[in-house]
Design a protein around this nucleic acid. Structure first.
Lengths: 234, 234
DNA sequence: CGGCAGGTTGACGTGACTCAACATTAGTGG
DNA sequence: CCACTAATGTTGAGTCACGTCAACCTGCCG
């Protein structure tokens, strides 16, 4: 394996304020792994042997219920940690992590978590802040699910996606990884069918442009109007 | 103000493994506050000047949306921390905390959070573990909202409540603080009406016993059957 | 004893799920 | 390079769980 360079992780907020020599030590203990699209980084209920950092690609974190439903908890972008369950006192992963596109991840053995957070206060501070903001996210998700209709939730989901992984193109803002209607449905707690209908309707109105596993938001502002529920409901 | 005794907090998991002298120092910096029923411990958007420990009573944490909806995020039982938003890098409280019954809380100025977690590793470890499990809770909440129908969600909510604050009586397991149908609705993302109908139906079947701001679960097992969605749907 | 918060219950409408058929595109092997 | 197949996506029709609207009851507190 080609030896890893600290430049891979130097700019990231998780490792902010850590000396170059320490970064070398940190990355020296990492394994680099390629994960092909639709392959899993880790699996629900599996022993949490490692925690990960996404270097490139996009990962979908999905919870599977006993009765076969899949609920997407979040999407991970490059630079974010994942599989940090071990940090929260779990010994097993709480969800599946599936590569939404081909990915490169770094993996460290779980027991290094303690070492890192003891040795590098900024590491622990940063990661706990990250956990905190995920808690916030989860709570707003609950609020959304409780108070908004499907249309608004889907609109919100698209807005979140373009904010997180949007790429400007001449057509509009493209969600920068393959995403199906089914995926949208699993993010918003609805069905493939309803999601498809909404996207189609929006496409007719020129709000978005669809394609196979592809969504381009043409008019984010009008989408926001829908998300906020102040749509005229013609 | 009567001086506070370390015995108030000695047994709690948050302060587990901390020396008696340190406990004295910790509690020496706390203010004890009584909060009457329906009064607020803190308010959404308000400057997060303090974090709290609930000594007695029950607190409902509620998020208010701009359009007037109220969503109950969680109930706090004695011994739990609340208002720890400040610990997660927020300067303002993310929700309202309302006393569901008359309460006694301890309050510490937010800046002591850093002191405590730096001085007492077990304090920081315990609280972060708590945050972790709240994150888990929030995620399962999202999964529930996405996959289950109202009936199952309400059943789950009651089961959670009796697990957390159930008190055995001769009639069954009583939820040990005043709780209205409206409260149940806000926990489960439904309306007062639907909640009321469900409770009434269950009362007819002898599953629960209701009353004004009062719920007694008579047959937890049958409630679990409903919660799991393996009901015969007669 | 009046008033009000909390609770119940019916009638009705509808958003979104289900069931179902079909269209389109990507990928695969001959 | 084309035929075949499997994903993926679209769209219609029918149904139902739940929300909305509305009326009314009931126990509690001053």
């Amino acid at each position: 394996m080609a030896s890893l360079d600290r430049s891979l992780i130097a700019g990231l907020s998780v490792f902010e304020g850590i000396a170059a020599a320490d970064l070398d030590r940190i990355i020296g203990q990492a394994r680099s792994i390629r994960v092909a699209r639709d392959q899993r980084v880790f699996e629900q209920e599996q022993e949490a042997h490692s925690f990960f950092l996404l270097l490139d690609g996009h990962v979908r974190v999905v919870k599977s219920t006993p009765d076969g439903h899949e609920v997407t908890v979040r999407y991970i972008s490059p630079g974010e940690l994942l599989g940090i369950a071990s940090a929260l006192g779990r010994t097993t992963y709480p969800a599946n992590a599936i590569a939404a596109a081909d990915c490169v991840v770094l993996a460290w053995p779980s027991q290094l978590w303690l070492t890192f957070s003891a040795s590098f206060p900024s590491f622990s501070a940063n990661t706990y802040k990250a956990v905190g903001s995920r808690l916030q996210d989860a709570h707003s998700r609950v609020v959304e699910m409780s108070t908004e209709q499907v249309e608004q939730r889907v609109a919100h989901a698209l807005l979140k996606l373009i904010k997180q992984s949007g790429k400007k193109t001449e057509e509009g803002i493209l969600i920068d990884f393959p995403i199906s209607r089914q995926d949208v449905a699993e993010m918003t707690g609805t069905t493939l069918h309803t999601a498809s209908r909404l996207l189609s309707a929006w496409e007719d109105q020129g709000l978005v442009k669809g394609g196979r596993q592809k969504i381009v938001v043409v008019e984010p502002h009008r989408l926001l109007v829908i998300a906020e529920g102040r749509t005229s409901k013609s």
